[in-house]
Amino acid sequence: MALDARTLRLLDTFALRTRRSFYGARQGTHRSQRRGHGVEFAEYRSYELGDNPRYIDWNLYARSDKIYVKRYLEEETVSVFMVIDGSRSLTHPALQLKWHAAANLTTCASYIALASHDPVTVSVLGGHQSPQFWGPRSFAPLGAFLDSEGKHLIEGAPAKIDIVEAARIAATRVRFPGICVVISDFLYPLEEVVTMLSSFRSRNMEIHAVQMLGAQDIDPNPASGGSTLVDSETGEEIGLSLDPSAREHYARKLKEHTEAIRQHCLSAQIHFVPAVAREPLAENSISILSEMGLFV
């Protein structure tokens, strides 16, 4: 998944921003929950045996005759966990634009994270989980991983995926809580969506849910006169005549479903971002990144 030079220049202007602080694995640029030896003062603490005398505040000792040590906020990296729905609703050959949009968004977000030396892990639900990528030089392997997964899922034999179970397994592999970006069309029953998101939330992560819909998901308007509609996930078929009233009915149902997910995310402190997969992918990804508020 290569990005052109113009997109990379645009992405260089972005930086990863977290709302919360996390424990990081390495020294980084994000405020950590760990107290240590940063530059930003955090608090005073009574001196205890073993503390380094360098951090004793001698002025305060002169005023109060008590020995205190100064504590500073540690700055560490933040783990970025990108989760892409690899089910057939995104990877079916007829719907693969959604996958490409999701993969492109993942690439862009990862580029920003890797540029600030934050570790990135990509997990494809129904596919594989990548190793943890560190540093800007890992950008190319990450792109290759996404290309490989895309090819495998789009061109491979279709398989039924239990999205809830796949999400649960992916969440168990998180080593350091951090930012989790879940990209899916969320066209599942609401209970399954809630369960899927809860799997990541239970790992104490800052979750951003991106609903990547296709144009045909928003307005299913195939051939005039009628169509046999095939479910990309199950292969189930129904014959329907999608006249304007039926399409209006469908749009209302989709809106209700999206709103229900939004309400859940709001209550669960999950940042929900609706998005539509469209060309050109890079511009579409930057637009979504801007909307997510995660990258500034």
Binding site: L187, P220, G225, G226, T228, V230, S232, G239, L240
Partner: peptide, 28 residues
């Protein structure tokens, strides 16, 4: 019932199944 319809793949029939079912191509 079957012969004249065009097949179209959709992401999910989650909401489409709830629409009133009418065989396609009946009038044409």
């Amino acid at each position: 019932v079957r012969g004249t319809a065009q097949q179209a793949v959709v992401s999910s029939l989650l909401f489409l199944k709830e629409l009133p079912r009418r065989p396609v191509g009946r009038k044409t």
